[in-house]
């Protein structure tokens, strides 16, 4: 076992890991941050997306030791300081962007990365960016709508299909 340290949601953390410990396992089992979901564990579904140094990555496809020293942000870091839902989270609730909620942490983290790069995305931009996030419930439409709404754009004309 080796000690690994990083910053998670603004807090300095450390823990003992093996070489093979995935970042997803370190977050969930090491730190108890179970908001990050593991859907497939085969790099396909995007449920495990977190930010490492500001970039969206699949935490099931990175070793914890390879991101030692990094700034990591997870879904637990997306709420406002007073504990209320952050803008993107609130938009998912308002626009019914989730059903079972399993894919939602990854969707929200990918959406946050998109909006940081592209604050006013088109619908096509949103769909393209969420290519690696799979949802088995919603049919995506309300997720796209929620992301557009979170960017401050008027979605009243975006019909539920």
């Amino acid at each position: 076992m080796t000690k690994v340290s990083m910053t998670v949601n603004g807090r300095a953390v450390s823990g003992e890991v093996e070489g093979r410990t995935l970042l997803s396992a370190f977050l969930r089992e090491g730190l108890g941050l179970t908001g990050t979901h593991v859907g497939c564990d085969t790099s396909q579904c995007g449920a495990c997306v977190v930010h490492v140094d500001g970039k969206a990555i699949k935490s099931c496809t990175v070793f914890a030791m390879d991101v030692a020293g990094a700034e990591v942000r997870t879904i637990e870091g997306m709420a406002n300081a007073d504990g209320s839902l952050g803008t993107i989270q609130q938009a998912f609730q308002d626009h019914h962007g989730l059903q079972c909620g399993f894919c939602t942490p990854g969707m929200v983290m990918s959406a946050a990365a998109l909006l940081a790069e592209n604050p006013k995305p088109s619908e096509a931009d949103v769909r393209h960016y969420l290519d690696g996030n799979i949802c088995r419930c919603t049919g995506y439409h309300n997720i796209v709508k929620a992301v557009l709404a979170a960017s401050g754009q008027d979605v009243s004309a975006v019909a539920a299909e």
């Binding site: 969206a56 990555i57 699949k58 998109l114 690696g132 996030n133």
Partner: peptide
């Protein structure tokens, strides 16, 4: 290539 998260790594 792939999706944004794949491209970031």
């Amino acid at each position: 290539i792939g999706d944004p998260a794949v491209r970031n790594r």
